[in-house]
Simulated assay, not measured.
Amino acid sequence: MKILLTGATGFVGSNILEFLVENHEVDEIYLILRSTSEQNASSRFQDMVAASNTIARHYNKVKLFNGDLSVRNFGLKENEYKFLTQQTNIVIHAAASTQFDLELTEAMKINFDGTKHILDFSEACKEFKHLFYISTAYIVGNYPQVFKESDYNVNQKFENSYEETKYLAEGEVRRGISSLHSTIIRPSILIGDSQTGKVQGFKVLYPFIKLIAQKALSIIPCQSEACLNLVPIDYFNLIFSILFKYQLSKNKPSHLNISTSTFHVINNQNAMIKDLIEYGCPILNIEAPLLVDPEKLPPQRRRVIKRMFNHYFPYLNRPHLFDNSNTLKVAQHQCPIIGKDIIKNMLNYCCEVGYLNKHR
């Protein structure tokens, strides 16, 4: 089995890479890494190896290609691209920008164009077998009802360029499913390992936690019942490994009766923001900010608070409901509930590596 993996330097992609290098059925893994203004592709890869004993032990399985997914043929030399199309039979597309504030044109270039080029590549592969596409549960947008795995266009509106471009990119994958065997995996908000708290990148939820830890927030504009759907990365890893094996198996159990190739990796119990505050603030030795219903604030104060929280405001004030029936049929494992121990592990890890500081 020879696999092309994108997004290997990201949180999700690096975890998938660790799974792949230890899989005895995987012979070679091809990475497309882009050079940045600060670091070339080779240096970025060496940093990955240095940070992971698992990857370091299986270094010889991995081959690096310096390319850019947003460019046709990944910007590779003709012989490099041809080599990959002749060798690759599994494609895992985990690369994406998760920035909420990215300009739409830039987000389209990364999330939409990159996915289209992955689909073009998959169609060009001589012995193609399967595409695994990492989408997001938050293509749900502002849809107020339970979002099922079979749902896609439910007339939702989007809060930011991330949601919109991931929705459009998934649409391209869905259109190609008739000709390409594909699996769409939609995780919700990923956090660190449930046992160790280990996380890479400190994105999405973590900057919000940092604002609280820095005592920059005296209030949080949300109702007392506000919640977030949080998934520890080790649960995502478990589900991905099961889906990977299941989707590539030749004899799938007929009794499962799964009618779609889309799977939600979500938590069946949302994490209450008041619990995150109650359990987390004592660990950081800070006073808990107040949860204030934004509708009860004076109009001018509400506008200021809304601007201040900008990208987080919709997530704090709109509960999202997801169905994961397909995932549970295949994996038969529910996500651990985000309780006191997981919050403690998450915050302690952030403090250990210097992302957060405990106040005295």
Score class of each variant (00 low, 15 high):
212 I>K: 04
225 E>I: 09
188 S>H: 10
204 V>T: 04
261 S>V: 02
230 L>N: 09
269 Q>G: 03
211 L>W: 12
239 I>N: 01
203 K>Y: 06
247 Q>M: 11
259 S>A: 09
283 I>E: 06
190 L>G: 06
266 I>G: 00
185 I>T: 04
205 L>C: 07
240 F>L: 09
231 V>I: 09
243 L>D: 04
248 L>M: 12
205 L>Q: 02
263 F>H: 04
211 L>K: 05
183 T>M: 00
265 V>I: 15
195 Q>E: 05
284 L>I: 02
245 K>H: 10
266 I>L: 01
227 C>S: 15
235 Y>N: 07
197 G>S: 06
201 G>W: 10
241 S>T: 09
192 G>W: 02
239 I>C: 05
265 V>G: 06
210 K>L: 09
242 I>V: 13
272 M>Y: 15
187 P>Q: 11
226 A>K: 12
217 L>G: 12
189 I>V: 14
252 K>E: 12
228 L>W: 11
227 C>N: 15
277 I>T: 07
199 V>Q: 13
281 C>P: 03
182 S>E: 04
236 F>C: 01
206 Y>D: 06
196 T>K: 08
278 E>P: 01
234 D>V: 01
209 I>A: 03
201 G>R: 13
228 L>P: 05
243 L>E: 02
265 V>S: 06
275 D>H: 15
236 F>R: 01
265 V>C: 10
228 L>A: 10
249 S>T: 14
213 A>M: 14
202 F>A: 13
268 N>D: 13
